[in-house]
Simulated assay, not measured.
Amino acid sequence: MKKYHLVYLACTVAVVGTGLGAAPASAGHLTHVVHPGQSIQKAVGAAAPGDTVLIAPGTYRESVTVTTPGLTLRGMGRGVVIQPAATKTAAKTAARTTGKSAGRATGKDAAKATDTCAAAGNGICVVGTKDRKLEDVTLASLTVTGFTRSGVYAVDTDRLTVRKVTAVKNGVWGIAQEASVRGVFRGNTARDNGDAGLFLANSITTEQGATDTGGTLVERNRLEGNRIGVTVRRLRNLTVAENHVTGNCAGVFVVGDENKPKAGAVTVAANRIVRNNKSCPKTARLDALQGSGIVMTGTEDTLVTQNVIRDNAGKSPLSGGVVLFKSFVGTTSERNRISDNELSGNLPADLVDQETAKANTFEANSCQISRPAGLC
């Protein structure tokens, strides 16, 4: 097996040969080029902060863990496919080997993180720590598919960028992030994943109040055929805008609970949310889903505006165009504003407010049917 190649980002041959083009890099930053049959993780382990790992088209059977700040992991288009290792034994061996090779960047922690990522069933993991968030990592222009948990999973990151990534047929989430701030998720495709195409949360395992994301942005993604297109769970200060959401059991979920501070201060704007009529069975945490456009439960101070929400129809308690649903732990939604949306063909109604208190505002929406009547 040949070693991966090291070239300077400013090198004309490397830039022109890949057909990508790039701005001149800072002095000393390298591009590590990986070809089919070579190890992405080995190149990631050898990379220094600010370097780029550039992946040539082909299929790579491995999990990859990034623990180096400022690293860019970029494929030469969606023909770069990352899949699970062929066997569990091969996956464990690869994780141990490539983890050791990552010692230059992060020492023993990298080996442990690499092994954990693969063993948990994830494709690409971007991992910081509670005490020191991993900063300025970029993932771009590749496909990740077939993992039992997540295609991309990030924890404890700051300013993570995920763009033009295709996450298909992963067991739980397509692209997931927790305990992170100032992320940008732009131009991705998440399709046919077991739970949410895009999942963002404060903490997956710990009961705690909503956290401020510092302005995380989810925009211009295509989300289709998942259980839920986008889930925003126990977060504040986040924008979901200009996404195309179709063919899921539910389009967008903004979820809170009884913890303080309450989830909210989220903007859901200018999305196209149509025909999310796939049927998904009840789970331990959530009722059966079908025909839900936007669902808000246990949230406050959220703005839903200028969305096109059409033909989302079902018989679930959460079905409808925009649904305010009292949370399963009894937390009400308050001071949310639903305005200037275009709604039609949603059943049982375009606007559904199941809250008993009149604490939310519906204004200037173009719609036909509401429950209770008078919201249109």
Rank of each mutant, 00 (worst) to 15 (best):
D195A: 07
L200S: 01
V274P: 00
R132C: 01
S63Y: 07
V33A: 12
G291V: 04
V13I: 11
V172P: 00
A27L: 14
G214A: 08
N202W: 03
M1F: 12
L200F: 10
T297N: 06
E342V: 13
T52E: 14
V137S: 02
R104A: 15
G298Q: 07
A46T: 09
R222C: 00
N307I: 00
C376T: 03
T267V: 10
V15K: 10
A269W: 06
R78Q: 15
F362A: 04
T129E: 12
F253E: 01
L142C: 06
T18G: 14
S339D: 11
T356M: 11
F199I: 04
N122F: 00
P36T: 06
V13Q: 04
V7W: 08
K262C: 01
C280Y: 04
S203A: 09
K282T: 13
R335F: 12
H5C: 11
L198K: 00
T161S: 14
S319C: 01
V172A: 09
Y153P: 00
E135N: 13
S141I: 03
G291C: 01
T267G: 05
I40R: 07
G215S: 05
F185C: 03
G45D: 02
L54K: 06
A27R: 09
G50T: 10
T356F: 14
D350H: 07
E224R: 13
T129F: 06
L343P: 02
A46F: 05
A113Q: 09
V64S: 02
R285P: 00
P261Q: 02
A154C: 05
T68C: 04
T267H: 12
V64G: 01
K164C: 08
N226P: 01
T361Q: 08
N360P: 02
E178I: 05
G374V: 07
L160A: 03
V245K: 01
I338E: 03
A190G: 05
L235E: 08
T299Q: 10
K88M: 09
A196F: 02
T299F: 08
I82Q: 10
P57F: 06
A94Y: 13
Q41C: 15
G58L: 00
V33E: 12
A270S: 15
R159E: 02
R149F: 09
V308S: 13
V266F: 08
D340A: 15
T52W: 10
T302E: 03
G320F: 01
C280A: 09
N248Y: 07
A86R: 14
F362N: 02
G291L: 03
